[in-house]
Design a protein around this nucleic acid. Structure first.
Lengths: 161, 161
DNA sequence: TAAATATACGTAGTTAACTACATATATTTG
DNA sequence: CAAATATATGTAGTTAACTACGTATATTTA
């Protein structure tokens, strides 16, 4: 990956994705290694239901930052696995409310130690001069202030003058 | 995305992907804004052929860090767009050699300014206390020394003792 | 309060990467 | 030098996200 490495900042999106992928793949292995039948892609949904108890489809989607169709696909899988269950909201018939099942609760208990391991291993991995997690947080702050596109548009405008 | 944000380091893979996606989408807009008909996903291939002139399929795949089937799909698209062309390697009949076409070269010339803008806008975006590009480089170095999985396995082993 | 709009959920199809497998040519080895 | 192995390319099918669009219910407004 010589050339992409040389391209540096210009290929930052590709690099971020590559890194994400690598970490996710190893994440799957870690769960396996610890005897937990769990897919990393389920993490956001499981985690949010663990923290918030009962949420609707769109609420979950917003919390985890996915679109609702993607979320629905995940929810279907998790319901099939009997990790979560759903019921209609009586107050608002449009809504479907999701929560962890007993099996899901058990899974959470099992996952506690795995999460500790993953957290510690990640902390170990990113403990460098420029901390990756901090960098992500800082860039997300920057994006809140001004999007990447807006920054570029300013530069394009400057060039035209 | 409150909860995922709170999960912090535990959801780092999700965060990296989200960031990559956001930058890529704005990247597409930047090219459009500058009147260049170009998709960000083509970048790695175009860039490597710009730098190295003539390469085989697998050489390109290795350079850009994708699998060869993914690379073949990209090459097909680019050939259809007449941005690159290919010929058999006479010395090794298994190989197909790729290079930029005249149209591809023109595209490169057009893209120079866009790359400058993207580079500058990215530099602006990630110029925070913990520099994202540096953090990526450092983590990649860490991974070379010891994979994420290996780090986790050490911790799992410690727990068992 | 009927009509217009907004919200919640769902389905269908797309995208951009992947893995697994197949085939052709080249290289190495018994 | 024939057989085994390695390399290069290609195809088929999968995955995990997406966008676009449709329907049902709730809310707002003329």
């Amino acid at each position: 990956m010589n050339v992409i490495d040389e391209a540096g900042i210009l290929a930052i999106s590709t690099r971020l994705q590559r890194l994400s992928d690598r970490i996710r793949k190893d994440g799957l292995e870690i769960y396996r290694e610890m005897g937990i039948s769990f897919e990393p892609k389920w993490f956001p949904v499981i985690y949010v239901l663990h923290k918030k108890n009962v949420l609707s489809v769109v609420e979950i989607a917003n919390e985890i930052g996915y679109t609702h169709p993607s979320t629905i696909t995940l929810l279907k899988e998790l319901e099939k696995e009997k990790i979560i269950r759903s019921k209609k909201d009586k107050a608002d018939e449009r809504k479907r409310l999701l929560q962890l099942s007993a099996k899901g609760q058990q899974l959470i208990d099992q996952m506690g130690p795995a999460w500790e391991v993953i957290t510690a291993a990640t902390a170990d991995l990113i403990d460098t001069q420029n901390n990756l997690m901090q960098a992500i947080l800082e860039v997300e702050e920057q994006l809140k202030m001004k999007s990447f596109l807006q920054r570029a548009l300013v530069l394009i405008k400057e060039r035209q003058d």
